[in-house]
């Protein structure tokens, strides 16, 4: 069970949280102008990252606030939690 460091409440068991999928996907402001393919991309397509992954969580059984988590999808290690407005960590340059 993950131990998630809620930015507002501190470390708590995973069972207090709900996962909300990939982070940093903005809702298109002018949806009507998008093609069907562009809209479908926003609606359905998510990256399936192996490695560090930014995702949204909500402290459902606590402060009820949403925030972002950077979790490693292989080891489940969490290296960072940060508020919704925060920016993701820049990916390191590959070799």
């Amino acid at each position: 069970m993950l131990l998630i460091d809620c930015p507002h409440c501190g470390p708590r068991d995973e069972t207090e949280f709900h996962a909300g999928g990939e982070a940093h996907i903005a809702r298109p402001e002018k949806a009507a102008e998008l093609t069907d393919a562009q809209w479908a991309d926003y609606l359905f397509m998510r990256s399936n990252t192996k490695g560090w992954f930014a995702e949204r969580w909500v402290h459902a059984a606590g402060c009820r606030r949403w925030f972002n988590v950077e979790r490693h999808t292989v080891t489940h290690e969490i290296r960072r939690t940060y508020p919704m407005a925060g920016a993701p960590t820049e990916p390191e340059e590959g070799p």
Partner: peptide, 13 residues
């Protein structure tokens, strides 16, 4: 309620 909160907090703060 969760749905409303999610949009208020994540998209329309």
């Amino acid at each position: 309620l969760d749905w409303l909160e999610e949009w208020l907090q994540t998209e329309w703060p």
